[in-house]
């Protein structure tokens, strides 16, 4: 596995197969916590953190438990278990070790417990038969892609707040339209890799 192909994998997971805008995973936080750029950044950071760790741990769970015992069909429930426990654990550790980081991440950390993007990236890593390094690169790329999408979206929504929008479109309707337009824009990256 060369550096070049890892780089391609990274770019493809950030832009081409962007988790939010191409795979449509993690839409809930994408719409829910994208009202301000600052909170969107916080969410992005938290997701990056959890996605990377979850991918590494689920990789080992898959190889040493599920594959070894021939229990591949338990993949989904096992991974959910891992992610939920992991998020709880990380929350406790961060609260103790770094109260500042804990406050910065705030409510977004527990929110990730049920984030389908995290489950999605762990499942896809196994599906594509990635090795450990590829798994990490893909997870980091997916998380950066998620952060990129949510921060850009939050930036647009901040501008939308002060724009003159027709009444029926105010609030969520215009946000959904914006999201779909962003998705179309990201479609332009198809064929890049």
């Amino acid at each position: 596995m060369s550096i070049g192909s890892l780089l391609i994998l990274l770019v493809s997971s950030i832009l081409v197969n962007n988790f939010v805008l191409s795979r449509f995973l993690g839409i809930c936080p994408f719409l829910g916590v994208s009202k301000q750029v600052e909170t969107a950044m916080g969410m992005g950071m938290a997701v990056t953190f959890v996605m990377t760790l979850a991918s590494i741990i689920t990789y080992f769970i898959q190889i040493f438990i599920l594959d070894a015992l021939g229990l591949a069909y338990l993949q989904t429930i096992a991974f959910i278990l891992v992610i939920a426990a992991l998020v709880q654990f990380i929350e406790m550790v961060i609260q103790k070790m770094s109260p500042t980081l804990y406050q910065a991440l705030g409510i977004y950390l527990p929110l990730i417990t049920t984030n389908c993007a995290v489950l999605g990236v762990t499942l896809l890593n196994i599906q594509y038969n990635y090795n450990l390094i590829e798994t990490i690169v893909n997870a980091v790329g997916a998380a950066i892609g998620f952060s990129l999408a949510i921060v850009l979206f939050a930036g647009i929504r901040e501008k939308l707040e002060i724009s003159d929008i027709p009444k029926p479109f105010q609030g969520f309707p215009i946000a959904l339209i914006t999201a779909s337009l962003m998705s179309i824009a990201f479609l332009g990256f198809t064929g890049l890799v």
Partner: peptide, 10 residues
Amino acid sequence: IPVISLGGMG
């Protein structure tokens, strides 16, 4: 096996 392994993980 699945019950024990999953329960064990939990």
